[in-house]
């Protein structure tokens, strides 16, 4: 069942077009990431869905209900979206419990129901015993948890998370993200997570919507956008890539520096091949692959990135190997490309 549908949405700020003819859909219970560089319109899109800004044209539907077009718009307080903004934005004058209960309508719920829901939410985010604390007495991670609980408490049709983890340090960020995504899945929530962290987008969502200049550049599962990018540029936005010049021969074979048939003939390149560094196998035995010389090692601990210069390619080749890696700079190595050959012709 479709939970959210955005069709032909355009948002202009004055004469500047921030979102341009953008469309996508989300199914019930789906978690989507909006991934893109800063200024590409991610937050604007999120705010338009929440009803906080007015679209110039296009429509936003929750299920079958039309909530936003350019002329008549359901105001934000009637949309029932759980919005978790960039800085959490807890009400500084209210305790944790009162922040969480803030959106629970006293006409809709009895006092004891409100208490129950609040207690349940506090349990969900693992903050029992901190009900009476003020936001200023909480750590960054706790504040994010409370902001999420506040959004979830109103049983929203849709949760909108605007880079909720970006303020946290790396370890806490991973932990909290796993926790929050787990929680959203448990509750079957439909959610949109705005992020500029490519790993965060891939690991936490069912669907990655890649945005560029106010448009959807690619929309698919994490595997699809990572494995089958629609352009070299998009490939680079979801992970490390090698973009090598290539030539498609008449027989259908693709010639590129690491192909078995050898590199493209100089001057007759027709496009590019996009390779992920982890798709290259590096070995020290001469039996297979293209010969090269190891010129640099970036050591990350769990893996290492090797930079290898090969005769066939002007740009050095980067290959990722699992650690512990026992290579030394200056060594002769042999490279073999194992993954799919993604060829993009020159425009």
């Amino acid at each position: 069942m479709t939970s959210l549908s955005v069709s032909h949405l355009t948002v202009n700020f004055g004469s500047r077009t921030v979102i341009s003819d953008l469309s996508f859909e989300l199914r019930q219970g789906e978690i989507a990431s909006l991934l893109g560089p800063s200024g590409c319109g991610k937050t604007t899109l999120l705010r338009a869905i929440a009803g906080l800004i007015q679209p110039t044209s296009g429509a936003i539907r929750f299920g079958s209900q039309l909530v936003g077009v350019s002329s008549v718009v359901l105001p934000p307080h009637k949309r029932g979206t759980g919005y978790v903004p960039q800085q959490g934005a807890l009400f500084p004058h209210l305790s944790v419990a009162k922040n969480i209960a803030f959106g629970l309508d006293k006409n809709k719920y009895t006092k004891s129901e409100i208490t129950d829901i609040t207690r349940e939410m506090i349990g969900l985010i693992g903050m029992k015993g901190m009900e009476e604390r003020l936001p200023s007495q909480l750590s960054g991670g706790q504040q994010t948890r409370v902001a999420l609980a506040r959004a979830l408490a109103i049983k929203p049709k849709l949760i909108l998370l605007d880079e909720p983890f970006s303020a946290l340090d790396a370890v806490l960020r991973d932990e909290l993200r796993t926790e929050v995504v787990g929680l959203l899945r448990e509750l079957g929530s439909t959610a949109i997570l705005v992020t500029h962290d490519r790993e965060e987008a891939l690991v936490s969502s069912d669907r990655v919507i890649l945005m560029r200049d106010g448009k959807v550049a690619q929309n698919g599962t994490p595997e699809e956008v990572y494995e089958a990018p629609i352009s070299p540029e998009i490939a680079a936005s979801t992970g490390d890539v090698l973009i090598l010049p290539a030539q498609q021969s008449g027989s259908g074979a693709t010639l590129y520096p690491l192909s078995l048939e050898g590199g493209a003939n100089a001057g007759s390149e027709t496009g590019y091949v996009v390779i992920r560094p982890e798709e290259i196998r590096v070995s020290t035995s001469a039996d297979m692959g293209v010969e090269g010389s190891l010129i640099h090692i970036d050591y990350y601990g769990h893996d290492a990135m090797l930079t290898v210069s090969v005769a066939q390619s002007a740009t050095p080749i980067k290959a990722r190997v699992a650690g512990p890696a026992d290579f030394t700079v200056g060594q002769k190595v042999y490279l073999q490309h194992l993954g799919p050959v993604r060829y993009f012709s020159r425009q």
Partner: peptide, 22 residues
Amino acid sequence: SPQLKEVAATLGKSKSSVTLHV
């Protein structure tokens, strides 16, 4: 901060209620 007002709006509060409670 305007963000607080926005969050309150998404939590179902009308403009007057936001003014009064936030």
